[in-house]
Structures are given as structure tokens and as C-alpha cells.
Amino acid sequence: MPNHEKLGVFFGCTTAGAPHLLKGLENFLSKAKIECVPLGKDLCCGVPLTLAGYHDEAAEYVKKVADKLISTGITKMVTSCPHCYMMFKNEYPEEFGIKLPFKIMHFVEFADELLKSGRIKLKNRKDVQILYHDPCGIGRRGPGLYDEPRRVLEACVQVIEADRNRVLGTCCGGGGLLRASLPKLAVAAAKRKITDDIMPKEVDTIVTSCPFCTLNLSDGAAEIEDKELNVFDLPQFLAENMEAS
């Protein structure tokens, strides 16, 4: 890492609120020996406000969030949640006129960079097949980060593609506040996605890059009786499959 760079990692309220996701990201950072300012463990980016139409109230709120982030003096911020990512990257400048004075990256881009530069090394587990689920937030509703997570995962395991993927990937049902408004409907969507849509019989692991997708797909998987399925958020999965550096 260049000397002048000061890295912030924005955990986000959903990752921070789920102990296994929080631990996964923390383990990744410590195993990769990443020095960073931990942010957003107790601070929401404000996306639930804009998704519920609270734009006027959000304007004041996001200003406070931005001030806090800026005061840390970071030069680059990594978010693990696609919602936070899109909020900081697009909504802050476009809707609220706040240009954050640091680079914003999603975790998939960050991990891809670390792997390329050799700062992390993944175990060779090519006998393992995983299915990658494209979160809409960094996919079709974002900048289309489809290759980055696949590159990272392919360095470690075999990546199996769903029948419909990338820009056409079926939604897990976890976004748009649906897990808050109609949780059973959200989980039913995840279950349907796994059973009807994506899951080749021999695959028992799904990896994705969004805490909402991870939680919702896990809940959906738990309702499938005849199959044991594991669902991982990318930081969690990498933390478990990293060579000690």
C-alpha cells in the first residue's frame, strides 16, 4: 500500500449486525494484514431512507455521515455492501451534492486488486465447486462488477454458473426493503431461486458479494429440507480459504 494512502473499510449496518458476516470480514482483514480505519459498524449509509422516500430527512442525515467519514482523513474506502457502495458512489454526489474526497470501492474490486498484486494468496481448492450469485446492487443496478468476483473465486475454486446470471441473474429477493416489509415473501424468493432456478444438484455452496443476498439466500436455503447448503459472503469465504501471508 502506498504510504500516502489511508484505507477505510465501511462495514455497513447489515454486515455489522450479523455476527458471522462481521467476523468474516474482520478475519479477512486481519489474515490479509490490512491496516484500515473500521467504519460504519454503527452507522447506516442512509439507503433505507432514500428507498422509503425520506429524501428531505436523508439530506441532513447523509451530510452528518459524510462529515464523519471525511474527518477520518481516509483516501480510499471499501464497502462490503452493494447498497452502501451505490449510495456513497452515486446517490451522495448525484442526489445530495456531496462529493466524498476519497476513492470508493466495493469489496469485490478490492479483493481483485489484492489478488493481482499478490497481497493475498488463496488455497488451491479446485476440487470444490461453488455457484456465484450476482447481487443486483453491483451488477445491473450498479457498474456491472461481474468479472472481479469471478476472477477472485476462480483463483481458488471452480465457479459454476447459474442458468441465468450476470445482467440477467435472478434476484434473491433480499433487496428494496423487502426483507423488512414482507420477510416471508423475500425468503420464498430466495428458496425459489435456489430450487427452480440456479442450483445444479452437485453444488452445495453459494458465494455472493452482498450481506442482504447472503442472509436472504441462507434463510431460503434453510427452508430446503432435502439439501444441506452453505451460503457465504465473499469476505467470509476468502477468509476461510486464504493462505497465511
Binding site: C13, T14, G17, D42, L43, C44, G46, P48, L49, L51, A52, G53, Y54, H55, E57, Y61, L177, A180, S181
Partner: peptide
């Protein structure tokens, strides 16, 4: 539409509660 619903006071209660919680505590949970 959700924006318009907010303007018209038509946000479902638990969604408005969640939004209030973000504004007050800095987290929706």
C-alpha cells in the same frame, strides 16, 4: 412512487418506524 407515498403520508408504519430509527440512532436495526 415510494417518494410520492412519503409526500402523501402513505408509508407503511413499520417502514416509517425503520426510517425514524435510522434518523435517530444511525442504524435501521
Amino acid at each position: 412512487l415510494r417518494d410520492d407515498m412519503k409526500k402523501e403520508g402513505l408509508v407503511p408504519e413499520f417502514i416509517s418506524q425503520m426510517a425514524e430509527m435510522v434518523l435517530e440512532t444511525g442504524t435501521p436495526y
